[in-house]
Design a protein around this nucleic acid. Structure first.
Length: 428
RNA sequence: GUGGCUGUAGCUCAAUCGGUUAGAGCGCUGGACUGUGGCUCCAGAGGUUGCGGGUUCGAUUCCCGUCAGCCACCCCA
């Protein structure tokens, strides 16, 4: 087979593009309701923009090269550094909190798997300049309402919420040392996928004694805000550490989204820069990868752009979401909505059909007709295949009458409609 | 980047132990059907069996390489 797209890149056939457009439209609609403003940046950036945040090793996972001016550049693998730059440049002028979203196409040079390509579109929503946990709740609510807007309910998707500070406080309170935390985080992150004895091994390698390992397992098993609160009550600083997540979860309940939200401390989200509440959205069958992930990254903007503003955000890719929507068979989004298919009964009717088609198109009606002479049945067949709502039949008898026959292709019914009425008021 | 599994028509799949011209359904095109679609029937187009090499009288089948896809790891946008 020749002429395929590059591995990990997609051709969008009309049906697939229709799905993508539907996803984008829904994202934009919900973002609008949440009063977020859309922005964008360049798909190609200086390589340093990304190596600054993630280290030089990241270059192997990027589409990075030298441009003709000798600049080291990379296709963007994420949006946050660009956002940080844009916000930093205008930090004084922007009213806080900043509520921005974007739908960039992102690129990553990695071996592809299901739900994970070398290119994807990702909704990014961020709130910058607000430390209150109500901002965390707002963002999680937006992500959940995206799901609702796609027709997905709590039986389809769940938001799992954690807080780095809670996790840390419980582990330290349970007797773990600072240097043991990375191994503990790693084990907790994997705890859902890896059997417990393998985890015990990871922890032993990280220098944890068996009583410390059991602390890790206990913490990882907490699945409710009450359980977390109870655990926190027993350790030093626990009250304070749990305040954010308690407030955020209560806020989500107040919004009526409690059914979608569960507290789950196994959500760690890599290592890097998250400082507080983190969350992910999953399909309830857990067949797919995470639909969405994000959290609070208060120190990152300063590290990247120089402005010290608290910030939080999430990313939601089109690939896993598209798989989920296809699986749940949502109302199919036709790529075109054809109002009428015009049919010429005889060769004499072709010119009148052209005239009529053009007049209707001028009036905003979506119209198609056969581009070569064919039997009526052939023309009707094409009309039906196109998904046209109606066929407008133009023949000698009708023309003599100053009318057309309009056939409802769904119902199979027909009515005679005067030409004047067809052009004025029939379609709108 | 590492390891495993899989590659046959646009799609889903078949082809005996290695055997002659690689088949079927769906889809597509045309016809039966001359002013009325969806049904039915008939016919047709469509293949370098992913690609390259090897073994063999003969390879879709066995072997090696390569490319691609899937899965796990790594990594997580």
């Amino acid at each position: 087979m020749q002429g395929q797209a590059l591995p990990g890149f997609r051709d969008f056939y009309p049906d697939e593009l229709a799905l993508r457009n539907y996803i984008f439209a829904t994202w934009r609609e919900v973002a609008r309701r949440y009063a977020f403003q859309e922005y964008d940046g360049p798909p190609l950036e200086p390589l340093e923009l990304f190596t600054e945040k993630s280290g030089a090793e990241i270059e192997q996972q990027l589409y990075a090269f030298e441009d003709k001016g000798g600049r080291k550049v990379a296709l963007r693998p994420e949006m946050t550094p660009t956002l940080a730059r844009m916000v930093a440049a205008h930090a004084q002028a922007l009213k806080k909190p900043i509520r921005w979203f974007s739908i960039p196409q992102l690129f990553r040079y990695e071996r592809q798997q299901r739900g994970r390509l070398r290119e994807h579109f990702q909704l990014n929503m961020d709130i910058i300049g607000e430390a209150s946990p109500l901002a965390d709740a707002e963002l999680i609510a937006a992500a959940v309402d995206m799901m609702r807007a796609f027709g997905l309910g709590p039986q389809d998707v769940q938001a799992r919420v954690s807080d780095r500070r809670v996790l840390r406080t419980l582990l330290v309170g349970g007797g773990l040392t600072e240097s043991q935390l990375p191994a503990a985080f790693d084990a907790i992150d994997k705890s859902e996928r890896v059997p417990q004895d393998a985890l015990a091994e990871v922890l032993a390698k990280g220098g944890l004694a068996s009583h410390q390992a059991s602390v890790v397992f206990e913490v990882a098993s907490l699945r409710s805000i009450d359980g977390v609160s109870a655990a926190l009550a027993k350790v030093k600083g626990g009250e304070e550490a749990g305040e954010s997540i308690r407030t955020a979860v209560e806020a989500l309940r107040a919004m009526g989204l409690g059914e979608f939200v569960s507290v789950d401390l196994t959500i760690v989200r890599g290592l890097a820069y998250y400082t507080g509440i983190v969350f992910e959205l999953f399909d309830t069958g857990k067949k797919l990868r995470a639909i969405c992930g994000g959290g609070r990254y208060d120190g990152l903007l300063k590290a990247l752009g120089g402005v010290d503003l608290p910030a939080l955000g999430f990313g939601m890719g089109d690939v896993v979401l598209g798989e989920l929507l296809r699986e749940r068979a949502p109302a199919d989004q036709a790529s075109t909505q054809l109002d009428a298919f015009l049919i010429a009964v005889s060769g004499e009717d072709v010119a009148p059909v052209l005239t009529l088609a053009h007049e209707l198109r001028d009036r905003g009606v979506a119209v198609e007709y056969g581009l070569r002479p064919a039997a009526i049945r052939k023309q009707l067949e094409l009309a039906a295949a196109r998904g046209a709502l109606r066929a407008v039949i133009v023949g000698p008898d009708e023309r003599a009458d100053g009318a057309v026959v309009v056939r409802d292709l769904k119902a199979g019914t027909e009515e005679r409609v005067p030409m004047a009425k067809l052009l004025h008021g029939f379609f709108h």
